[in-house]
């Protein structure tokens, strides 16, 4: 019973429910049509569920009222969740689960000039790195963070922008059929590390409270002081930056090494499959 109460959304959002449900349905439908490895399904569901759990359960209360929990939530929204979804290579399953009319609409939209321009700009390596890092720093700027934690509309914009940008970035760098070379994709992952470490370290080493909004609205855990909270939050950003990029780089290298021996190049080989 207690556990079920945890699943009650802290801030009910129809858009989160619809997007999660539609994606899940498309994937299930697609899974029936094309054969997927077990690990692909595992990665996909881990990614999708983790995104849902951090944005639509009671966990959100703690993310709103404790800086380090907020940082953990960002880690899932921007890094882990999208990373796992992309790792599953779900494009084939998702698109085969898509209804014909939807596919036609998607083709029409993607053929539209301004959309193409936007995609070209945002999926350019330099722009992708700048947007990825810029978004993290932007939402952590003290005055911006203050308003984002207070105003539920801006709070939702922050969460959505993090998740969508995470999908875009990891989709760009982990895609082995990408038009960008593995070298440039590895360089992208390396390029996002130093700014994140710097931001995390800056938060960690700041001796005064950078984000007073958590004190003003009240902290979820009374035992954690404001500076400790801030330091843990800084550390999370500091460490996860390097961690995620290293894992990503290893995956790209591994995929490239395995490429010639692969029969179907679209799936990720791991040790289990050999």
């Amino acid at each position: 019973m207690e556990l079920l109460l945890w699943l009650v959304p802290w801030e009910p959002s129809l858009s989160v429910v619809i997007v999660t449900a539609v994606t899940a349905m498309l994937f299930v439908k697609g899974c029936l049509g094309c054969k997927l490895f077990f690990r692909q399904k595992l990665f996909f569901w881990t990614g999708l569920l983790s995104l849902y759990v951090v944005s639509h359960t009671q966990l959100d209360y703690y993310a709103e009222h404790e800086f380090f929990v907020h940082q953990l939530k960002s880690l899932v929204l921007h890094h882990l969740g999208p990373f796992f979804i992309i790792l599953a290579c779900p494009e084939k399953a998702l698109s085969s689960g898509f209804p014909i009319a939807g596919k036609r609409l998607l083709r029409m939209v993607s053929a539209w000039k301004p959309v193409q321009c936007l995609v070209n700009v945002f999926l350019h390596p330099v722009a992708a790195v700048i947007v990825f890092v810029g978004l993290i720093i932007f939402w952590l700027l003290p005055p911006i963070h203050f308003v984002a934690m207070l105003d539920w509309r801006i709070y939702r914009l922050m969460n959505w922008s993090m998740a969508v940008n995470g999908l875009m970035f990891w989709g760009l760098v982990l895609d082995s059929d990408s038009k960008w070379s593995p070298g440039s994709r590895i360089a992208m992952m390396l390029a996002v590390v130093p700014p994140q470490i710097l931001t995390g370290a800056l938060i960690f080493f700041t001796p005064h409270e950078l984000y007073p909004i958590y004190t003003l609205c009240g902290r979820a855990f009374t035992g954690v002081s404001s500076i400790t909270d801030q330091q843990i939050g800084g550390l999370i950003l500091w460490m996860n930056a390097a961690m995620m990029s290293v894992i990503g780089i290893l995956i790209v290298i591994y995929k490239e090494l395995r490429q010639p021996r692969l029969i179907l190049g679209s799936t990720l080989p791991t040790k289990n499959s050999t």
Partner: peptide, 8 residues
């Protein structure tokens, strides 16, 4: 006796 509350 461990009520968290806002300062604002």
């Amino acid at each position: 006796n461990d009520i968290t509350h806002s300062a604002a």
